[in-house]
Design a protein around this nucleic acid. Structure first.
Length: 424
RNA sequence: GGAGAGUUGGCCGAGUGGUCGAAGGCGCACGCCUGGAAAGUGUGUAUACCUCUCAAGGGUAUCGAGGGUUCGAAUCCCUCACUCUCCGCCA
């Protein structure tokens, strides 16, 4: 959520930034400022009323003590008008505040200056490409065929026991999953991230904290009996670790990594998008989540991109990095890099990671702040996160790219984890 | 799941209707003392919003959360959440 202070101070800049998303929100922003003025006036009125009532009740107390009962009773009658006024103002304030946040919620984050203008995927800017991609796919089998041939994934069994989009990994397929998870976690820990193993369900407050609620309600599995939500990404529980916190400036950055399964309803998806491992309801992912000082968040983003790129290189998978354009940028992000691996058989790019700087957009909603070392007022932190990495599409690319006459070759870096180097 | 006890500031802990944003202690910060330190001693030590907007000052709210009683609630009542103890169940 963007702050009203910022809207007031950087009105034109914000307007300009949002244009990169193809949005003209001038009137919405103006309405917010007007609403904020109403809020302030109401608050002042309410505070004054309460102040008056407070003084009066102190007087009454004094009168009772002094034994002046009649005068006290008289004073009492004067409070009833104040009480009525107080009630009205209180309600008005609550309504105004609610309307204000409701409006504020619909303003997306302001894109960073480096975000290219654009309306769709095609306007994303490729910043890096690694390995041999494009073409050469004719004699390659798609991963769902390979998975079946080598007994790595049983999609039908998943359908039987749960439903479509819930694959069962079997044998070397299951071991490969475990190997990838451990490989990613080990590398992240070596890079300085603290490993955490969070709950896979979160409460409503947490879902609000990272912005899944109220807008993306339909994307999450909801356990109604206990009012809990299955996490769509580890970002939700890990970021909420810091909800409402005031950190010490010297404790920044906070860097965490977590493996969790991710649950997504993916309502409305169909066709080739959901074939095989392309899109699932349950999948495994290792995530990195960072809370950083505002002055250093972009430097941090660059390092995260470098680290995640390094992981894919180690796995020797052809990939590219895209800087997302305004139109493709997520609602909460100020700058996002997408990592895509090459699916040789499908001859298309598959997104395996999305690394973003949310600046203070998330922390404003989370009330996540740090106290400056010089003792000044608490300031909002910046938050960043990225997948490092999402397993299914990595596995898909791995199977398709590494298929040979004799079987599927396991990348060298995974062999210490799998204890086999070939899938036959 | 049943019964009981509890939840107060960074931490411990007092406070059962008024002058309580809250005693006392610890911790922390700054000063004094000291050659330096410890001890001692003095001062300060929450957050949000409003006013002001440079600062200072002032106002309001917050004693687990929400609602109620009352002129007035940390204190009384109701609902919920969480923690602990005992019983039950259990990987």
């Amino acid at each position: 959520m963007i702050t009203t202070t910022r809207i007031k101070e950087e009105f034109d800049l914000i307007l300009l930034g949002l244009q990169k998303r193809g949005l003209d929100l001038r009137s919405e922003l103006e309405e917010i400022l007007e609403q904020d003025d109403v809020r302030k006036r109401t608050q002042k009125e309410l505070d004054d009323t309460l102040h008056e009532a407070r003084i009066l009740s102190k007087e009454i107390g004094g009168l009772f003590k002094a034994g002046k009962k009649e005068e006290a009773e008289q004073a009492k009658s004067r409070t009833s008008a104040l009480k009525a006024q107080e009630k009205v103002l209180h309600q008005k304030l609550a309504e105004t505040e609610e309307a204000l946040t409701e409006k504020l919620r619909h303003i997306p984050n302001v894109p960073h200056e480096s975000v290219p203008k654009g309306t769709s995927e095609s306007d994303n800017v490729e910043t890096e490409r690694w390995g041999e991609a494009e073409g050469s796919g004719e004699q390659h089998k798609p991963h769902w065929e390979l998975a079946k041939t080598y007994g790595l994934i049983d999609f039908e069994a998943g359908v039987k026991i749960t439903g479509a989009g819930f694959p069962v990994y079997t044998g070397k397929g299951a071991i490969l999953q475990r190997a990838l998870i451990n490989f990613f976690l080990d590398r992240n820990v070596a890079a300085g991230y603290q490993e955490v193993l969070p709950p896979h369900f979160v409460n409503e407050d947490s879902a609000y904290g990272t912005g899944q609620l109220p807008d993306k309600e339909g994307q999450m599995y909801h356990i109604t009996a206990d009012d809990l939500y299955c996490i769509p990404t580890a970002e939700v529980p890990v970021t909420n670790l810091y909800r409402g916190d005031i950190l010490k400036e010297e404790d920044l950055p906070k860097r965490n990594t977590a493996y969790t399964p991710c649950f997504r309803r993916e309502a409305g998806s169909y066709g080739k998008d959901v074939r095989g491992l392309n899109r699932l309801h349950q999948f495994d992912k290792v995530e990195v989540v960072v809370v950083e000082h505002p002055d250093r968040s972009y430097e941090r983003l660059d390092r995260m991109v470098e680290h995640i790129g390094g992981l894919i290189k180690e796995l020797e998978i052809p990939h590219r990095i895209l800087r997302l354009c305004g139109g493709d940028l997520g609602f909460t992000s100020a700058l996002t890099y997408d990592f895509e691996v090459w699916s040789r058989a499908q001859e298309r790019w598959l997104e395996v990671s999305s690394v973003s700087n949310f600046e203070s957009f998330q922390s404003n909603r989370l009330k996540l702040r740090y106290r400056p070392s010089d003792g000044g007022k608490p300031q909002l932190c910046h938050t960043l996160n990225g997948s490092a990495l999402a397993l299914p599409r990595i596995l898909a690319a791995l199977l398709e790219n590494n298929q040979t006459e004799s079987g599927i070759v396991v990348p060298k870096v995974l062999q210490p984890y799998t204890h086999f180097d070939l899938i036959q």
